[in-house]
Design a protein around this nucleic acid. Structure first.
Lengths: 236, 236
DNA sequence: TCAAATATGACATAAAGTGTCAGTTGTGTC
DNA sequence: GACACAACTGACACTTTATGTCATATTTGA
């Protein structure tokens, strides 16, 4: 079964390879190679074959036929990235993003699916950031974004240290309900357990994010609308 | 072999299932289920098991362990989307995008890789579009974006009909060298074979894109710099 | 015409998967 | 502590599948 993958890989090289050569380099018989090729064709791989002298077999120029397996964090980031792209990429390049998302979701368990289904609804795209914000924008944030994204997607509480505009650092526990982009600055619209109220946090000012065990239920967007003024960028 | 996938899917449900139940619903013996579970464990799936009364088997909560296989066009769009995300998403959510890109590229043949390697360098992000441009922006473009993206990624010539600002439609053959975003409007920086010169095309004004056989070599960015003024959005 | 190549069918054999059975270990309940 | 339940493991026969050999057809280029 491993051999099928190897074979598919070999066929991807541009030259025409003869079945005989393939059989030798895979240590098997030509008959088996022919059978394997049929299996690959059944799977939908477009394999060209030329008969006669100088002929051979070749996988028609194509791209995404391999199998991709991802880690947890990669899947989370990919899903969020796709959601952002679908929100942002101004319909142009999202034609085929939807099927990818469906394929990804087919691999998830039912409760994971429900997390992802409302994902796009939790990502908000605003206008571009103002020069004032940009001037204080930390270009290379040292925080681990993976903690942020995991807590956001999995709807888990997040423990952070936050440095406000006067560089005063406070430790907080927040529920990251919505992500809000004033390009290129990301904000988290959250429930703040310390202040017991809705607060906005600029992601590049978050210092030591840590996903907590406790989860939360996403609040309706209406609870946060008053925090977003489309004319002015948000200054937390 | 199909059974392994089904089994992995069943284990993803949150309840603890007994091996006996799994054997019945999969129409096989418990011994086989145990063997299958070992195979899945060898593949790295974290499977919890509780002995004793009320015990059972369960796949530990995790995300990205399935195998994803994509079509050509999906792979192309995903790669482009990732490249855009890495360019745009303002370092926050790109931590794990790079490994995904590497995994995707591992599935590609050598010549396909070289196409992808310089992909990010061919995507340019500018400022936001001006109100003037936005007013004439076609929100639901009817063109097939997949043709555009395929031609761009595979470095193939593109036959298009272009409707300019006075709605005059001309048929052209272009080489799509660079993509340029004035959010939310995408432009293609191209060599125009009809006018034999560098031209900029607004993507939403492209009508019948068609990938041609003939390929081209990407020209250095310097050839196009004079077409981009960061202060003014481009009006082709 | 010939040789090289894909392609398919038939059949014996080799390999892998499966089921039955027996047994071990751990866990909760009575 | 006894018992039932349930995850595990090993051994062996059996069944299914995969593989190799051989034969044959078909296309193609020199």
């Amino acid at each position: 079964m491993q051999r099928l993958d190897t074979l598919a890989g070999m066929l991807k090289s541009d030259d025409f390879l003869t079945v005989k050569d393939l059989a030798i380099s895979l240590g098997t018989s030509t008959r088996t190679i022919f059978r394997d090729i049929n299996i690959l064709r059944d799977r939908g791989l477009p394999i060209d074959a030329d008969k006669g002298r100088g002929g051979g077999v070749k996988l028609h120029r194509s791209w995404g036929l391999g199998r991709l397996s991802l880690t947890d964090q990669e899947t989370i980031d990919l899903l969020i990235s796709l959601a952002i792209s679908e929100k942002m990429n101004s319909p142009l390049f999202m034609d085929n993003l939807k099927p990818i998302r469906y394929k990804l979701m087919a691999l998830l368990s039912p409760d994971q699916k429900s997390n992802v289904e409302n994902l796009r609804g939790r990502i908000l795209i605003g206008s571009s950031a103002s020069p004032i914000v940009l001037s204080s924008y930390e270009l290379s944030p040292r925080q681990q974004a993976s903690e942020l994204s995991a807590a956001f997607l999995c709807q888990r509480q997040l423990s952070i240290c936050y440095s406000d505009e006067s560089n005063k650092i406070t430790k907080r526990t927040i529920e990251p309900h919505y992500l809000y982009l004033n390009y290129p600055v990301w904000y988290i619209l959250a429930w703040d357990h310390l202040r017991t109220g809705f607060r906005t946090f600029r992601c590049d000012r978050i210092l030591k994010p840590m996903v907590m065990e406790k989860s939360f239920k996403v609040r309706p967007f209406e609870d946060f609308t008053h925090m977003i003024k489309t004319d002015n960028p948000i200054l937390p």
